[in-house]
Amino acid sequence: MLIINKINAYIGLLLAVIAITISPMIKVPFKGNWNLYQTDSRLFFISIALIALTSLCLFVRQLRAFRLLSFVMFAWAVLMAAAVYFKSNHYFNSKFFDKVLAKTIHYQWGWIVLLVAVILLVTSVRKGENLWPN
């Protein structure tokens, strides 16, 4: 039987929404801080869809699906970080311009918030004993 820590799940979902929608992910010179939508809109919409499915499974009490989607969200966060890294380091297909661009673009604190959110989601469901006999 799966047991859920609702406080961790709710805080994880809230932090994931904050990290993906409004927190800055990268700092671009002359443009300022960019969130995930300004960085790549496809990553943004897929991430919002994953969060929506995860929250739906939480509210409907489908804990197996919630646990699976939490692990998918963790893998997706790692894949997003790698995709943004490779996009910023191989943008022009020229070694010189890519080096210059990679030195000027910096990651912001939004990635840390996303990592904390995903870790809270993954650790909110665990296997446990049924305390109430049938």
Score class of each variant (00 low, 15 high):
residue 13 L to Q: 02
residue 41 S to L: 03
residue 16 A to Y: 03
residue 119 I to L: 14
residue 18 I to D: 10
residue 63 L to P: 01
residue 75 A to Y: 11
residue 70 S to E: 03
residue 86 F to L: 15
residue 84 V to I: 15
residue 96 F to D: 08
residue 132 W to A: 06
residue 117 A to M: 05
residue 133 P to F: 11
residue 68 L to Q: 11
residue 85 Y to E: 12
residue 105 I to G: 05
residue 48 I to C: 01
residue 106 H to E: 15
residue 89 N to L: 03
residue 114 L to D: 01
residue 63 L to V: 03
residue 71 F to A: 05
residue 74 F to V: 01
residue 102 A to S: 14
residue 50 L to R: 07
residue 34 W to G: 00
residue 109 W to H: 08
residue 93 N to F: 10
residue 23 S to M: 12
residue 95 K to G: 14
residue 32 G to F: 06
residue 7 I to F: 12
residue 43 L to T: 05
residue 24 P to G: 00
residue 76 W to C: 03
residue 6 K to R: 12
residue 65 A to V: 00
residue 39 T to D: 07
residue 133 P to C: 05
residue 44 F to N: 00
residue 130 N to E: 13
residue 93 N to C: 08
residue 23 S to V: 04
residue 35 N to C: 02
residue 112 I to V: 14
residue 76 W to F: 15
residue 127 K to T: 02
residue 78 V to Q: 10
residue 29 P to F: 07
residue 15 L to A: 06
residue 47 S to Q: 04
residue 9 A to E: 00
residue 79 L to K: 08
residue 125 V to D: 01
residue 80 M to W: 03
residue 109 W to F: 12
residue 103 K to V: 03
residue 122 V to S: 08
residue 111 W to E: 02
residue 51 I to M: 06
residue 107 Y to K: 12
residue 94 S to G: 07
residue 132 W to C: 12
residue 84 V to P: 01
residue 21 T to M: 05
residue 8 N to Q: 14
residue 92 F to N: 09
residue 19 A to G: 11
residue 14 L to D: 01
residue 101 L to D: 09
residue 126 R to I: 06
residue 51 I to D: 04
residue 70 S to T: 07
residue 13 L to H: 04
residue 54 T to R: 07
residue 15 L to Q: 07
residue 59 F to D: 05
residue 26 I to W: 06
residue 96 F to L: 12
residue 87 K to Q: 14
residue 67 R to N: 03
